[in-house]
Design a binder for these strands. Structure first.
Lengths: 129, 129
DNA sequence: ATTTGTCTACGAAAATGTTCGTAAATAAAT
DNA sequence: ATTTATTTACGAACATTTTCGTAGACAAAT
């Protein structure tokens, strides 16, 4: 059967996903502590958003213990891929390459990063033949 | 004096900016016709959003004629730059290079596009020395 | 001149996202 | 055992964004 497509995460939801991506499955308490370092926010606000995310299917959770443990339903890369797609559509008229050029141009990249990108390009060129 | 920083455009606002970027200064009627091709929406909805954008400073307008002509207050590239910055922060933990790698990897690029990127990288490498 | 159409302005409803207070259950501390 | 702290659930207030109806000004068509 077809994979059910999940809604695009909102800003607040994305902030939570980032913490989960970095730290793995976590409790609301932990996520909230991390988010609090960036911005003051009530505990129940974090809780509520995570509950909504679980409802939407963005997060899964283990409720065996009183303290529920949440984790993303999708791989980080899959979510990022979808986000890039939407972003490119809404701000770059669908041209991912235009985005790449802009992002590359406006950002100071280290030699190592540039080498990585070159390597990726080489690989893509080879695949074409 | 310092350049007043404009708010980040919303989704609906971005759709309007894209039409303006492509077609230059336009009337509400024209923008609305373009947007209608993508999605059904009332004329006054488009009008209202453009008026709000003018209030916010995102758009300028010429009101000499009864039919006002709107145009973006900022260059396309400036707005895109800001959008990339926010996007990278919210979805890529601030790493523009991660975004570039993902966008590059997930997208089929033409030889010509790859050449352009390579050229840009060359230029960036030279600048470092 | 009168009607018909097009435009802006305004305001408010509807939809979406965010915030948090309160209550109930459970666990931990005294 | 009683108090204190932690956690989930729920609901509602608040904020932001999107939507559009209505009215008034002006222009075009008849």
């Amino acid at each position: 059967m077809a994979k059910k497509s999940l809604p695009k995460p909102t800003e607040a939801e994305l902030a939570i996903l980032q913490v989960l991506w970095e730290n793995g499955p976590s409790s609301v308490r932990f996520i909230h502590e991390q988010l609090s370092q960036e911005k003051e926010v009530g505990y129940t606000t974090t809780l509520k958003i995570m509950q909504i995310m679980a409802e939407k299917g963005l997060l899964q959770r283990n409720t065996d213990q009183r303290t529920h443990i949440y984790y993303p339903a999708l791989e980080k890369e899959d979510t990022q891929k979808q986000l890039i797609h939407d972003f490119v559509a809404s701000a770059f008229k669908g041209s991912a390459m235009q985005l790449v050029m802009q992002a590359l141009g406006n950002h100071k990249a280290s030699d190592k990063e540039l080498q990585e990108i070159k390597a990726l390009i080489e690989k893509m060129e080879k695949k074409d033949h």
